[in-house]
Design a protein around this nucleic acid. Structure first.
Lengths: 197, 197
DNA sequence: ACCTGAACACCGTTCAAGT
DNA sequence: ACCTGAACACCGTTCAAGT
């Protein structure tokens, strides 16, 4: 066997990442497996390990595809947006996590194997999201980047918390506010509180 | 084989739940398995399925043990606390999630098998946490329970978001504020914003 | 009624052996 | 150099068969 050379290494990488991305969208991260990716692209699991080295790396590359697509969409929409950028970003986060639920969830369900750190190239893709909000916040805080950074973190993390608890059914156990109402309440009142401080 | 009757059904349940709880503490939820629980208590996997019916049910019972212990500790500590109850709860959440990281994480990493809903008895155990904060908030909002409920949700979810992103290394990619600083900023400014609204 | 053992259909990971 | 096939050590789930 072997040495098919039907595809170059780059083609094979793209093939696997696209198939994996599709599989997550169809079945969710919990049912995702490298073996199914291999099956779908017509290669064996061994080949995937030859290319990606590990399951973690394969997932990271698939999640990176999600992050790239999401960031592009978010940045473009933010530029066109005429209303309050903070409210816009909160709404956008909720909408994206709903419309691309499986891909969004995979970003947070995957954890590196014990001992391994998230690689720098992946961390940078995450950082861009914070920077996007940070930049939008700068005019509000007298161009104080440190202050904007802290606010961006609190708001991103807060919106994420509302989002993840809402999607996993842990927020509707008492009362019945929508995730959007909660996220907008967070944005409005937190920013108002910061202003009055 | 069979019909050992070394333990009653109740004893067996407790045995499995305790062993499972211990296993999660030792190896984390991602390496947890029903087979290891069976091995540790000296029964077979079949017996666990006979008792619990499914993997989901076993995990729910183990997570319920965590929720009960946590709630008891939190409620008792809140009563003794003399400072601001909201700041106290934020700090307590962060501290508990750090000190009992694996058990805390298991609460949020487990998802029901597709189609199955979280049972009512488990949802009630979750609801108590919201009620705890709601009650502490009531004096601040003129005993308006609906308003307190909304604030409690935003704060719990927000603190949770800061907590989960912090523990999974997704908050320290830019800048360097501690999770506690972010959580206290959220509590202080959000509440201030609500007040000024 | 209770419990086992074995089977089924899966996993991630490794690697000698072929081309 | 590239790729396979098979093996290893695991999973959750089911169930006929024993006591």
């Amino acid at each position: 066997m072997a040495r098919r050379s039907d595809h170059s290494r780059e083609e094979l990488e793209a093939l696997a990442i696209n198939a994996g991305h599709q599989l997550i969208g169809e079945q969710g991260f919990s049912h995702f497996s490298a073996r199914q990716v291999a099956l779908r692209i017509g290669y064996t699991v061994g080949t995937l390990y030859h290319i990606f080295g590990s399951y973690d790396e394969l997932i990271l590359r698939i999640n990176a595809k999600t992050l790239d697509a999401w960031y592009g969409e978010m940045a473009a929409a933010l530029q066109k947006n005429k209303s309050d950028p903070m409210r816009f970003l909160a709404r956008h986060y909720l909408a994206y996590s709903t419309e691309h639920y499986q891909h969004w969830l995979a970003l947070f369900e995957h954890h590196m194997e014990k001992g391994r750190a998230v690689p720098g190239w992946y961390r940078e893709k995450l950082a861009r999201f914070f920077v996007l909000m940070e930049d939008a916040l700068l005019p509000r805080v007298g161009n104080n980047r440190k202050k904007a950074g802290k606010i961006a973190k609190v708001l991103w993390a807060g919106i994420h918390g509302i989002c993840i608890l809402s999607h996993t059914g842990k927020l509707d156990i008492v009362g019945a506010q929508s995730a959007e109402a909660l996220a907008l309440s967070l944005v409005d009142h937190y920013l108002a509180g910061v202003k009055h401080a």
